[in-house]
Design a protein around this nucleic acid. Structure first.
Lengths: 358, 358
DNA sequence: TTGAAAGCGATACCAC
DNA sequence: GTGGTATCGCTTTCAA
């Protein structure tokens, strides 16, 4: 049987309440008594029973707010299912999750939603933020008010958020680069396709990709063509790919840093170059899984979007209930390299990539 | 505020105790009362508060046994750190984990350890089993006694274990095959290196690998040389690789299904074929990470050994405390494709692959 | 500054 | 069959 507060109390000749105050530096206790109690606790290797702790604290009730933007996109829908799962599980532990789902990116609407949730009495907030000065200020303000904030999927670097949960885009781009390096013979020509030019998450992927290829040793070096923006549109990607194929019939690889992979794949398929032009894209979802299975996509780099929704409520819960901060300020989700054979393990993944489930 | 047993009791005009019996079909209750209570509970969407439930049950105390064999191997050491972490976390919830660490594979010693743990009063057991008739019988026996068993890392198929947590070797082999298929030009020669001929886990990798390559369409087909056993020894792998290189100077890829990757890599490096012969091996550990970084290994397929140790104690805990069986009988850990760029995310992985930590 | 006691939610035991 | 009550471990009043 593990030691509990009662045992320490007996050994110290005081009451449980006193032990509690000593161990949590709550004051209202004679210093020498506190010291002795802490000594005894350390000696016995006392660890508070988290279940008891949690149960006791449910008296205050833990209320956590979550705001997701761009819920119309497949990736955020996976994030969403992670949040829902977390909400379910936390409910079974007396926690409450208030979820707001917003379409598109709208700073004003976002700030309104925050206001609303705060007025509902949330004690912690997780959200997909916009990287604007207003929002940074808002996050810092909440933090000062004692409402910890977790950013997810995208970050506001340098703000006073508790932590960020999401992909390390630069690293993901590097990973894509190393895959290309393995896949293609020296001297091969590579085309990077960008999304919107002002999307910082996608840009860091692109930078990671390009930087890494530039660093390759000269003997195995690949030729990187200038990147082309596609605005996350398949029709643009299709057109660009066709055009580049025309200019460079010996094109050997395409890296789709944002969206548009279906367009690029179509162009490759139509020109009979399937398998001869290797394509790497991001995010495991239904269409991408099909492209993997058809052999048009060589790899998909997944950002584990489910985790990005699932973890933040728990991180806040832990922080609020046990004062336990996250292990790191940046909690980068795994960069999962997916092929057709490791994309559907025991049905675990399929439920994540199915956004229209209920 | 979520509904609790008290509220249901009030609405039904009975006591909490009666509600409890009704909801858990414990008998000693008038059927019509039970029915009414269940109806009310369903209507209110009652979910028992898991924290309260857990706390209540700590009175009996949950004692879980874990037995690991071959603790001298790097992979099992990672499993071990997963078990230790789980033990720590469960202790904070009133659970107790009794861990037995055995060197090598020894059926007799294993059975003794089981006996020992059972006599200590464990209510659930997780272990790395040998696939022998005696052990199958033992597992079935424990299961009948009401002691659920979880197999981990390797399985005893068809036994009455609660579930298995570990790699799907066949799928892993398939993944390796698909990587080779992407990496190498049509017609390339491939060498599969096996471990011991009687290791069923390693054999299923090999089968997955060979089957998948045989199914490739003829236009992109690769040539698979007869596999060579290396007995998990680097010196054997080194010798075999040198010999095969001699016979087939145009060798383009090596798949190390078991161990011996360092020997194979050395042979490739020494003959100046680094990068020209692609090598894929299993399990992310210190030496393999170095080989990845040096570029000798193209990919490492990791089996997430940490999870294999971490999850079983929780699965048993959940089962014992809330009668909640695992989602599936086979809980296959992710087949993680690792390159140098996605092998060390935020330090999360490094602590797993560092077996000699405390 | 300290102790005693009342919860948190569910379960188990003992009366009736 | 059913209700009452003690209990798990901890936090938080309220008295003293």
């Amino acid at each position: 049987m593990a030691v509990n507060a009662q045992k320490i109390a007996e050994l110290a000749g005081v009451s449980r309440g006193t032990v509690d105050r000593a161990l949590h530096n709550r004051g209202r206790i004679r210093p020498e008594v506190a010291a002795r109690i802490q000594e005894i606790a350390a000696e016995l290797g006392y660890k508070p029973n988290l279940v008891g702790q949690a149960l006791s604290r449910t008296r205050q009730g833990v209320k956590i707010g979550v705001i997701l933007q761009s819920v119309e996109t497949p990736t955020i829908q996976v994030v969403q299912s992670g949040v829902r799962r977390a909400a379910d599980e936390l409910r079974a532990s007396g926690g409450e999750v208030l979820l707001r789902e917003l379409s598109g990116l709208d700073d004003e609407l976002l700030l309104e939603s925050i206001e609303d949730l705060v007025s509902q009495g949330i004690q912690g907030l997780a959200l997909t933020p916009n990287n604007t000065p207003e929002l940074r200020q808002c996050i810092n303000g909440l933090s000062e008010q004692g409402i910890p904030v977790v950013t997810l999927n995208s970050d506001v670097p340098g703000s006073r958020r508790l932590c960020f949960v999401g992909q390390d885009g630069y690293r993901a781009g590097q990973t894509a680069a190393s895959l290309m390096y393995e896949l293609l013979p020296p001297g091969s020509k590579l085309l990077p396709l960008a999304g919107h030019l002002n999307n910082s998450a996608h840009n860091s992927r692109l930078n990671g990709f390009i930087d890494t290829l530039r660093q390759q040793d000269s003997e195995g070096a690949l030729t990187v063509l200038p990147f082309q923006p596609c605005f996350d549109r398949d029709d643009c990607a299709y057109e660009v790919t066709q055009y580049i194929l025309h200019l460079h019939p010996d094109l050997a690889g395409i890296y789709v840093a944002a969206n548009g992979q279906e367009g690029a794949c179509q162009a490759i398929a139509e020109t009979g170059r399937k398998g001869r032009v290797k394509i790497i894209a991001h995010d495991l979802n239904k269409p991408n899984l099909r492209l993997l299975e058809s052999g048009l996509l060589s790899f998909v780099l997944d950002q584990e979007a489910f985790d990005q929704g699932y973890r933040p409520p728990f991180l806040l819960y832990e922080y609020l209930l046990h004062q336990k901060p996250p292990a790191r300020e940046l909690l980068h989700t795994d960069i999962a390299i997916r092929t057709r054979y490791n994309s559907d393990l025991s049905g675990v993944l399929t439920q994540y990539i199915e956004p229209d489930q209920q």
